[in-house]
Structure formats: C-alpha cells, structure tokens
C-alpha cells in the first residue's frame, strides 16, 4: 500500500520538479548573460576599427574585425607587462616559500602561543594597506630603494606572508601526524623532516599560493601606485594612466584592458581549481 501511495504521489511531483529545474536553469542563464555583458563589450570593442568605436555603434558587432587596437595596446603596454612579470615571479615564489615554512611550524611543530602569532599574522592580510603606506614609502626612500622595482617586490612578499601561511597551515594540518612522528623516531630533526617528508607532499599547496600570489600581485594597483615610478610601473598603473585620458579611443582602451588582464584570465581558465582554493582560504575556515 505504501508503494502505491508513493507511486501516485511521485508522478505530479516529478513533473513539477522538471518544470522547476528548467525555471532555475533559465534564471541562471539570464544571470550568466548579464555577467558576461562587460566581457562582450571588451571583446567586441577591442576588435573594432577606430571609425566604428563610436557612440552610434556602441553595441553592434564590428563590420570589419581588426587588431589595430591590440597592436596599439601591445606597443604601449609591453614595457609595463615586462615590469609586472619581473615583479610577480619573485614575489610569488618568496612568499610561498616563507608561507610553507611558517605553515609547517604552525601545523606540526608548534611553539607556545603559536596560534596567537598566527592570528597576529592574519591581521596583516585584512588591514587597509593605506595604514602602512606613508611610512612604507619613507622607509623605502631612506633605504634608497625608490626608483627600482624592489620596494614593490618587498611589499608583495611581506603582505603575502599571511595568506600563504594560512593556506599551508590548513593544508599541512590534513597530513597525518604519524608521518612526522615516524620521521622523529628515525632521529630526523625539524628541517630534515621538512625536507624529506613535508616538502615532497607540498605541491598542491604550492600551486594554490603561487597562483594566488601571482593573481593578486598582478592585479594590485595600490602598492604599485605608491611604490613605483614611470620606469617600473606594472601594467595596472600603466593601463590606468594610459586610459585615464578621456580622449583615448574606446577600441584601444578595451584592447589594453583585455591585454593587461590576459595573464590572470588564462590562469583562471586553465588553473581555476587552485585559484578557487586560494579564494576560499581568504575566508579563513570557509
């Protein structure tokens, strides 16, 4: 009898379920299209010739597709793209290595009050960097480092330590303690254990921190605008200065914005999984 009841009850419900599913799908599709509008504008406008990048044809597809906007953007931004690359590579590697060492200690080799030290580190990733900026500039001037890219690298390394430590700590916490114990019993010290047991198991966490640091240093504007001069401008500052003048044609502006975003977009498309994990780590336990 219960079976019969279930059968009659399930059918209309299943039909309502199917309609509901299509409704959900439709709503999501509308949202997805809205989210993609700015991408449409960027792409379509960037391939327009100068004559078509006008108000009258704002939303139309180009009648002639051309890369002249991209060529211009490349000529203007090439030096700053090189600066960005020069800066993000050391910044992501050094902060990841420091984060790995810190995370190892804070997950597996704790010292008294290491959780308090960890919390004090985390505060550093939430502060508005404006609160350190004026003295930071003075400090870099005093050290005679202004006019090079070094101050920007230092800033990204230091202010990347908290999130890298967090990601590694949470990752190492999932490794079984027996691994460490076994290594200790064998007489290995802290560094030997790190080198032979922990580091070989760290690849996934390194992927997350390297990608996270790459993305956030590449996209940073605040540190860059305070700490670099024209010869060292990373691409965000160069892009802003280039497009800030309202006379610049839209096809060039959009091509420049896309060109500057291409590296992080490619990382997202191909390594999005790791990018996501970094994103969720920002919510501490999220």
């Amino acid at each position: 009898m219960t079976a019969a009841v279930a059968r009659t009850a399930v059918r209309p419900r299943a039909r309502a379920g199917a309609a509901g599913r299509w409704l959900k799908f439709g709503v999501l599709l509308v949202f997805a299209l809205i989210v993609l509008i700015p991408m449409y504008v960027l792409l379509v406008t960037s391939f327009k010739p100068l004559a078509e990048a006008t108000a009258a044809r704002a939303w139309q597809l180009p009648t002639v597709w051309t890369v002249e906007g991209w060529v211009f953007a490349w000529q203007e931004l090439a030096p700053s793209l090189a600066n960005s690359l020069r800066m993000v590579i050391p910044a992501s590697i050094i902060s990841s290595v420091l984060g790995s060492l810190n995370g190892y200690v804070m997950a597996k080799w704790r010292f008294p009050h290491s959780d308090v030290v960890f919390t004090l580190f985390l505060f550093g990733m939430f502060i508005p960097y404006q609160a350190v900026m004026i003295p930071l500039v003075q400090m870099m001037q005093a050290a005679d480092l202004m006019g090079t890219i070094t101050p920007l690298v230092i800033a990204h390394v230091v202010f990347g330590i908290p999130i890298c430590t967090l990601i590694f700590r949470n990752y190492y916490a999932t490794l079984p303690d027996q691994l460490i114990e076994a290594s200790r019993v064998d007489g290995a010290g802290m560094l030997r254990t790190y080198w032979s047991i922990i580091l070989p198991n760290s690849a996934p966490a390194f992927a997350v921190t390297l990608i996270w640091q790459f993305t956030s240093a590449w996209n940073d504007f605040l540190f860059a605008v305070f700490l670099t001069g024209p010869s060292d401008w990373p691409v965000t500052v160069a892009l802003n200065n280039l497009t800030g003048s309202m006379v610049m044609p839209y096809n060039q502006q959009m091509a420049a914005a896309l060109l500057a975003s291409l590296p992080t977009l490619l990382v997202y498309v191909f390594l999005g999984r790791f990018f996501m994990r970094g994103l969720m780590a920002g919510a501490l336990k999220g």
């Binding site: 997805a32 989210v35 700015p38 406008t45 504007f221 497009t243 990382v267 990018f275």
Partner: peptide
C-alpha cells in the same frame, strides 16, 4: 566558472569597461 571569472580581473580593467557602461 562564469559567475566567478570576474574575480580574476583587476579592478583597474573592470573599471575601464564600467566607465564605458
């Protein structure tokens, strides 16, 4: 993927499109 991709773009690049929009 679609809903999250804007996170990968810098505010500067975002700002340029939205200034146009």
């Amino acid at each position: 993927t679609v809903f999250l991709f804007p996170m990968a773009v810098s505010f500067i690049a975002t700002g340029i499109v939205w200034r146009w929009l």
